[in-house]
Design a protein around this nucleic acid. Structure first.
Lengths: 203, 203
DNA sequence: GAACAAAGCAAGCAGTCACTTGCTTACATC
DNA sequence: GATGTAAGCAAGTGACTGCTTGCTTTGTTC
């Protein structure tokens, strides 16, 4: 890892810890194990460094996609939800800081937006396909159903560390409940396989 | 409004705008229309002032309660959701800052926690009553269902300003969808009155 | 009108911030 | 061994931070 990357990583970490104002160039340089002057020689300004650090952190976040041909909705949705949740949890601290500072640094929002937007379309597209294939029989709005689930997953990810007493169950158990509630909400009958597994676990 | 209250209000506003580090004593005093020295004479330190400002802001937030005897679930849940959402929207900027700074200022979290916790219990209690009265027929976990809805409402409130393109519909329309999805998820049949209203609107 | 408290005002303190300058060291290339 | 480049180091810039001090003004109470 060369100096540039060390600085980018350090900037992202320090930002996640203390936000923009708290992330002083001295501290970033120290965490990177680099002289402060080197920071300015590479990036010109704190602003440029932090922005690039967050951008590249956002770019690394490739997302899992839902299948084009739905087969077993509960299983597919659950593993998708777990993947998304894990990503959000991994950067929850950074996300909280970025959310709080969007008004002051709108460029930062850009980063956060990009990845999220596409996974929204992915999910609502999948729900629409469920309905089109006759797997979901209820009369529902796919976009609203998608924001309902994504919002809940997002809130859990950034809220769990902060208000732990609200989330008594573990992450996976919570996600399982969410997915089942959503499927029932849009009129997806539980598959025989899923039901059997559930009965088996309960016993 | 005496000077003390002016300072508290100004502190809360400035904090909501620029967070703890950004809320300088000079700026708070200026917004309050008061000399900076007066601030220290009243509260001793910036820390004490901001903490008290956030505490009293949190205390003002009394919440609407769900009825003990559920009668018309959709109507009751929707108006409850609207009330909660309005409160969250009103302080969304402050909430975003507080969420981002909890790790650095844990005392602040205390304020946010208090109100929220009780409305969680209120909602999950209501859902439980729905099931107990036989109004909700599905096999579901009331706590998970409650966090699902509250999480989605929370995410919408603090996310709408930030990622507006995700929320194409207005707040009320979104909440209506959320409530209907949840009710279907827990097996509440829509009342004849609600269905009639819906058909009427669609026409 | 004397006495008191609460406010304003001007100035300053020590510390931190982003950023700059001037100079030295280390290493690779030719 | 000369040259160029990337890094380190020490010091300092002006602006801003939370907070203090000393003094004056204002309004109220008796």
């Amino acid at each position: 890892m060369d100096i540039r990357d060390k600085l980018l990583a350090a900037a992202a970490n320090v930002y996640a810890e203390v936000g923009y104002r708290g992330a002083t160039t001295r501290r970033i340089a120290q965490v990177a194990g680099v002289n402060e002057v080197t920071l300015f020689r590479h990036f010109g300004s704190k602003d440029a460094l932090v922005l690039e650090a967050l951008r590249s952190a956002a770019d690394r976040e490739a997302d899992t996609r839902l299948p084009l041909e739905p087969a077993r909705p509960e299983q597919e949705l659950l593993s998708w939800a777990k993947a998304r949740s894990a990503k959000l949890h991994a950067s929850s601290s950074l996300l909280r800081k970025a959310m709080g500072e969007i008004e002051e640094h709108p460029e930062i929002a850009e980063c956060a937006r990009r990845g999220r937007q596409s996974s929204m379309q992915d999910l609502s597209g999948y729900l629409e396909r469920l309905r089109a294939r006759g797997l979901a029989t209820a009369d529902f709005d796919p976009t609203s159903a998608a924001t309902l689930l994504m919002g809940a997953i997002f809130a859990e990810a950034i809220g769990r560390d902060v208000v732990p007493e609200r989330y008594r169950r573990g992450v996976d158990a919570t996600l399982t409940q969410y997915v089942r509630l959503l499927l029932r909400a849009i009129g997806v009958k539980q598959t025989r396989r899923a039901a059997r597994t559930r009965r088996h676990r309960a016993a």
